[in-house]
Design a protein around this nucleic acid. Structure first.
Lengths: 223, 223
DNA sequence: CCCCCAATAAACATCCGACCATTAGACTTG
DNA sequence: CAAGTCTAATGGTCGGATGTTTATTGGGGG
């Protein structure tokens, strides 16, 4: 194994063993490179890799720290990868979403609070049939994120958010707007909010399933 | 933004724009560093980061290539992150698994082939109540992976495999063996295989739900 | 003509040392 | 005591030298 990969493993092990905890500061690059027995250049490659997947937080002029390692940090790292997969298997992604998202929404129905419901209303009110595509994508991301967040499971939220990365959503919406399906989507969003307010988990699950399956169906025809 | 991060974004964009396709070879480090306007050292940090998340494949003495970007490559990158989360939110992970894995197994019931069933029998036959913990963990990983793989959805398999990283599984099994629950787990595995053979999707879903919930329940008591 | 092997060149791996840019914290000053 | 300033610590970037691995090429032998 290359020294850089060894360094990555060693740093990871230092975290797993508890030698480094969340929020801890790592020794300076020069010092750590000597401790691990490799050059600063090689160590920096290792640190950069760990920074990309949000394990380390490098602050210039200050130092390098272990991140909180909270599940939501999984998000960006996963999204980065999903972004690159593009159309290749978008239908497979939807199959996972169709399973996970209704379940998450159902859980959310029993846990969602007043503030979160207000936020849902707000994002819905910010768009209509004449809104720009960019704003619609933004609304759609927020809408689904708010619901998955309300399920109060950071892993679930991370996985779902990553699977619906912004670039994927953007492409879909571009197609949907051409099909004049915007009003239908917004109507479905409205229905989902109402069911959430009533706390009707079964109805929420059904509505979300229909909502996602609708897009999925459109995709199958478009491809 | 730092030059290294710019380089990461540029390489990512080259892939998104189609300038670089899966399997393509990147220009040599020296050449690419000049094209992107940064030093070779900094470029190497960017390449290392992309290599860790399985976007690039660096072959010493040969060159650097874009990976196939297949969904299963998501696996290792995600597992690496989940590994670091440890106990922090293991119950949240189980909540996601309890939703996704029965659904995947239910789909697998209709798609699983003879060879895959044989593989399931084989891994089950390789263990008993006196097997070492390491071998039990290995069996457990293979058993669940085979089923999720049979659902024929690479994203689903990647997410599930990542959520049950080997270190997490190892810790759980260590606890389960102390509780003499090994035989029960193996009995449940047997029942799941039989239901899969019959193609009874509903029963498979129920059995997998019970199976995962059982471990989840044990975890709640243990924590 | 084909196969095997050694020589070669290309490419990544690693290291070093220098200098720049930024930040946190100590210090000075009003 | 507060605000601004200075400084040491730390990461960011660079260029080049050298080592290691691999693919390729060309020649020699079968």
């Amino acid at each position: 194994m290359a020294v850089t990969d060894e360094a990555i493993t060693k740093i990871k092990d230092m975290i797993l063993s508890g030698e480094l905890a969340a929020g801890d500061r790592l020794p300076p690059e020069k010092e750590l490179s000597e401790k691990l027995g490799l050059s600063r250049s090689s160590l920096r490659e290792a640190v950069k890799a760990l920074e990309i997947i949000r394990v380390l937080d490098v602050r210039r002029g200050d130092g390098t720290y272990v991140t909180s390692l909270e599940p939501q940090l999984l998000n960006e790292a996963m999204s980065f990868i999903v972004d690159l997969h593009q159309d290749k298997s978008i239908l497979e992604i939807f199959e996972v979403r169709r399973i996970l998202e209704p379940a998450a929404a159902g859980i959310a129905a029993g846990r969602i609070g007043t503030e979160q419901l207000a936020a849902l209303h707000a994002t819905l009110a910010s768009v209509n049939e004449e809104t720009s595509i960019e704003a619609l994508v933004e609304h759609d991301l927020i809408f689904h994120s708010l619901i998955t967040a309300a399920a109060d499971n950071a892993y679930m939220a991370s996985v779902l958010d990553a699977l619906s990365s912004s670039t994927v959503r953007a492409r879909i919406w571009r197609g949907l707007t051409q099909e004049k399906a915007v009003d239908r989507t917004l109507a479905e969003h409205t229905a989902i909010i109402e069911a959430l307010e009533r706390g009707d988990a079964e109805l929420v699950k059904a509505l979300v399933t229909v909502h996602i399956s609708g897009v999925e169906h459109w995709l199958r025809q478009a491809l």
